[in-house]
Write a protein that binds this DNA or RNA. Structure first.
Length: 360
DNA sequence: GAGTTTGAAACT
DNA sequence: CAGTTTCAAACTC
């Protein structure tokens, strides 16, 4: 039997292709045999996903038909560990990323994927109780900007894929990955993200630059007209997507950047930016935000510290809230307040939604 | 593909 | 809280 492939070389196709009856996957799948996919052993459940068509689990109950049971089990798990469904990785401020609980490795020396820290792409920290650790804290063993590739060379298809760069990389984005989940709602979503990135004003070294349609030399091939002393960018722009809980606190964010070479060879049409954020898990999350744009190297500092999902008890029912009235969804450029925003993330509390309206 | 190793999660 | 068992992923052959 074909099993859920965990060793896919770091490329996860996040285009749904439609017809996914068991739920969205984010590239996550499981092979659970005994847990009924109702324990944290199940990667799908851990990520907040229902199991999907890529899963080869047996007696799976983590599906649409058992939403109530899934919810009850998740509550049980959260009783044992209130942070169980939060990202395992904490990235914030100027500190190196670390695993929330750390690892307890005895034999692996923390240098393979048996180690939770290594597997998540971060160095071990003083949270860990590992022996003979060779996974030094502060050494991030992956890249931090998600590269989106329009993979037109793959089987002649036009699918957009996520090139993680390494098999470890995807774990930065695997947990409760609401932004990618939302992108799966439509095959055109990734395409739209590209367009939005290009539609946005470009920022470079914190300065807004202008778009030029007929640039000739160097970096200008990518249609960004940069000052001559700043023409060394690999990627013209990148975007970050925040998801907020019902209190307006960031609970998840993602970073995306267009593939540079693809960008050079396939000029993309600039189209009006539209935001149709579908909210799937009203009980857990507030509305996902728009994508924000900025200079790529600045984006990792926008990763947030961990935040409690404060509505996991379904206190706020979807029908009682009018999200449009609470949040105005619109794209806001990161710069020129980039530094100020980044500074906020060094605090314990992440920044609130730009149009935050605190709920009771 | 089957079997072994590993360490987190669950349990006692 | 500590020790043990269960579990599924990672790894090896």
């Amino acid at each position: 039997m074909e099993s859920c492939d965990k060793m896919n070389g770091g490329t996860a196709d996040i285009v749904s292709g439609g017809g996914n009856k068991k739920g969205s996957d984010n590239g996550i799948c499981c092979n659970c045999q005994k847990s009924q996919c109702l324990k944290l052993y199940c990667e799908c459940l851990r990520a907040g996903n229902l199991c999907n068509n890529s899963c080869t689990c047996k007696a799976c109950e983590n599906n649409e038909n058992n939403r109530d049971k899934v919810y009850e089990k998740k509550k049980e798990i959260e009783l044992r560990d209130p942070e169980a469904f939060q990202s395992k990785i904490i990235i914030g401020g100027n500190e190196a990323a670390r695993h929330r609980k750390g690892c307890n490795c005895r034999k692996s020396k923390c240098k393979n994927k048996h180690c939770a820290c290594f597997s998540a792409g971060v160095g071990c920290s003083n949270q860990c109780k590992c022996d003979d650790c060779m996974n030094e804290y502060g050494i991030v063993n992956n890249q931090q900007v998600l590269v989106l590739t329009n993979d037109s060379n793959n089987n002649g298809s036009n699918n957009i894929t996520v090139d993680n760069g390494s098999s470890q990389f995807q774990h930065l984005f695997a947990d409760n990955d609401g932004c990618l989940q939302n992108m799966q709602n439509s095959e055109s979503d990734m395409d739209r993200i590209f367009n939005e990135i290009e539609q946005a004003d470009y920022y470079y070294y914190g300065q807004q630059t202008s778009l030029s349609s007929n640039s000739e030399n160097g970096i200008n091939n990518n249609n960004v007209n940069l000052p001559s002393n700043q023409q060394d960018s690999h990627v013209p722009a990148a975007a970050v997507c925040y998801n907020y809980n019902l209190y307006g606190n960031i609970i998840q964010n993602n970073v995306a950047a267009p593939n540079y070479h693809q960008h050079l060879t396939t000029p993309r049409q600039i189209s009006p930016v539209e935001y149709n954020n579908t909210i799937d898990d009203l009980d857990l999350e507030g509305p996902p935000s728009s994508w924000f744009y900025g200079e790529p190297s600045s984006l990792p500092s926008f990763f947030t510290t961990d935040t409690t999902i404060q509505d996991s008890n379904q206190q706020y029912k979807p029908e009682t809230l009018n999200y449009d009235d609470i949040f105005q969804q619109e794209a806001l450029p990161i710069s020129p307040t980039m530094n100020q925003s980044a500074q906020h993330l060094t605090n314990t509390q992440p920044p609130s939604h730009p149009n935050n309206n605190q709920l009771p």
